Amino acid sequence: LWRPLCVVGATTVAGQLIGMTFATPLIGTAMAAIFVAAIPLFSMVIGRLWGLERITLAGLTGLALGLLGMLLLVGFPAVPVTRSFVLGCAGSIFGALCAAYGSNYAALRLRTAGSWEVTCGAFLVGGLLTLPLLYWVPPPGVPSALDVFYLLLCGCMMSAFNYVVYFRLVSRIGATRAISVEFVVTVVAVLVGALWLHEPLSLVQGLGALIILAGCALVLG
């Protein structure tokens, strides 16, 4: 059981969070969230290669639309295409690939395991793998009591508890359909980034986001 948990912890938890956390300051919350919406596309391809998913004509059309949307998202930004922008896009894609890989691996190897056990094991492994990063990216100062509260809130409620529900969905309906909950994450994050944080998004990028969502809808049938 520990070997599959290590793989899921290294990908779905550590890899995904490292990629998205690295990318968000470079390209913004809204754009990073749009890349999250593309996770079902990667999941479909991995699931097909592993014999977990069946790609239909609608699925192939959705995959093509998703790739077109990502090209529009990266190729026509509202900000200059700098080294930081490219690295941010690469980090987002890396995080999305890790999420898709780990979810399919959990569906393949941990279908009979309980969602609480999978979540606890995956977060333990993910935490141990990301702990050394404190050496290269130390905290800017001593965390206050409020900082610790927000950290516990994000870690326990917004991540760990959600993963319990998520891994239960993976075992029941499959990785690609379970990942479709990321659509809600994308919508909320884009609205927060664009309206509250005033992050720029071009009209072409907005079109790309809609095309990605349409492609994922076709993939999910």
Rank of each mutant, 00 (worst) to 15 (best):
L17H: 12
I55Q: 08
S202A: 07
Q16E: 07
L57I: 04
L52Q: 02
R109K: 15
Y163N: 00
P140E: 12
Y101P: 04
G193F: 07
L128N: 11
P143L: 10
A175N: 03
G174K: 03
C154F: 14
G59D: 09
F183K: 00
L133P: 08
V219Y: 10
L63C: 03
W2A: 01
G15L: 06
G102E: 10
P138I: 07
A217I: 00
L68M: 14
A122T: 11
L201Y: 04
S43Q: 10
P40G: 02
T11V: 11
V8G: 10
V185T: 11
R168Q: 13
A10F: 02
T61W: 07
G193T: 13
L73T: 00
G75M: 08
G215H: 06
L57R: 13
C6P: 03
Q16W: 10
T130G: 15
F149P: 09
I27D: 08
G9W: 08
F123C: 01
A209I: 01
A100P: 15
T29N: 05
G69F: 07
R172V: 12
L133E: 04
V137M: 01
A217L: 10
L57G: 03
P40I: 10
A214W: 08
I39C: 03
R172N: 12
S180L: 05
A107S: 15
D147M: 00
M157I: 14
L201N: 04
C154Y: 14
L41V: 05
S159L: 02
A160L: 13
V192C: 02
A214C: 06
G47M: 00
G47A: 02
A160K: 11
G141V: 11
M31E: 09
L153Y: 14
G15A: 07
W196L: 13
E199N: 15
M158R: 05
